[in-house]
Design a protein around this nucleic acid. Structure first.
Lengths: 190, 190
DNA sequence: ACGAGTAAAGGACATTTGTCCTTATCTGAT
DNA sequence: ATCAGATAAGGACAAATGTCCTTTACTCGT
């Protein structure tokens, strides 16, 4: 909970009182490894702050293979943003790849916060802007870097994911097959 | 200007009076084919609504080649979002690929609008959310579709770009070389 | 402790894409 | 109308990646 407060305070100035009042709209939930936070083809009604643990976002591509789009670690918001914002069915699933603690808020509650609190309207915009920047960076990496460079980046930026996720998931995250990831690892180990 | 008003009204309810008052913060500018709206390595101080024309966003990758990240047509906002939001130097350039008309607002003016107008705070959040969704879709396409599928998508979603942009730009947008785009076009023409 | 089921590594060949070219076509200034 | 420079198409070979497979290493329940 302190992590959450600190995270919000880093975005906007907010008094302890206002923060704790807002906290009534959130609730803490725990996911075990393998449990789902969001299901593909259902409307995602919640957004979560990750206090502890790691989530994996993925979808089934047209060949029916799981494609990992994101590994999301603590001190980040996670949701199926498109589904949550538009309140349409989600094209992704989100699953815990280790035991995870979240603070979640419902769509309706968040709209109430937006309507009554300029502070939360401001937080909402800044979180959307930040998520945009993260996604833009991701797209630029996808477009520009080889699978090997992407793998090195993952090692640097999210080293714990290398051990928490399966080879299959990491390969799909990098946009290559397991075979190619195997070759990359072979090269690096030299 | 009517296009701009209509676009804003589709985002939030706003009175004609409030819209025209806000319009004082914007100014209309015209770019000729080839002119730049944003320069790489400079701080981007403006965001633009495209009333007419097409912009191309691109950056130099580590090999010094131009990589097109986006073709942006009328009825959209365009800026180097990361640079604009963070007021840091831009990693992209934005150039008109045909004669183009923009409504632009400075960073400082927009912050004033945010500070004084809940309506604009709301517009800002919703535009950021929308841009996020566009970027997420782009990333999912990059990760999932072959160059041929991406080319077919471009033909469907932005047909005019096929004729306005060069083969070089389209190839870098698809993440392949000119040679591969040439092969794709050959296949399609059968 | 053991075996069945699961996950990772890597061999062999096919396919795709890139690199480096040459040839053909378009465009704009004189 | 003509020519120079720019732009696009496509041939030939090299390099990278995918597909399919076998072998090896883990992991969990009994």
């Amino acid at each position: 909970m302190d992590k959450f407060k600190q995270f919000i305070k880093n975005i906007v100035p907010i008094s302890d009182k206002e923060f704790f009042d807002s906290l009534a709209y959130f609730r803490e939930i725990h996911l075990q490894k393998g449990e789902y936070f969001v299901h593909q083809d259902k409307v995602c009604k919640q957004i979560a702050f990750i206090a502890h643990g790691t989530l994996r976002s993925f979808y089934l591509n047209h060949k029916g293979e799981e494609t990992t789009s994101c590994f999301c670690s603590e001190r980040n918001f996670s949701t199926s943003f498109r589904s949550f914002i538009l309140q349409q069915v989600s094209d992704i699933s989100i699953q815990a790849i280790e035991d995870t603690t979240l603070f979640v808020i419902d769509y309706d509650s968040l709209q109430k916060l937006y309507a009554t609190s300029p502070t939360w309207q401001n937080i909402g915009r800044k979180v959307a802007e930040k998520e945009y920047i993260v996604m833009e960076k991701y797209a630029s990496v996808l477009n520009n870097e080889t699978a090997k460079e992407k793998y090195m980046r993952l090692i640097n930026e999210q080293p714990s994911v290398i051990h928490k996720a399966t080879v299959e998931d990491i390969a799909s995250y990098l946009g290559v097959t397991r075979r190619t990831l195997s070759r990359i690892r072979q090269e690096i180990s030299k």
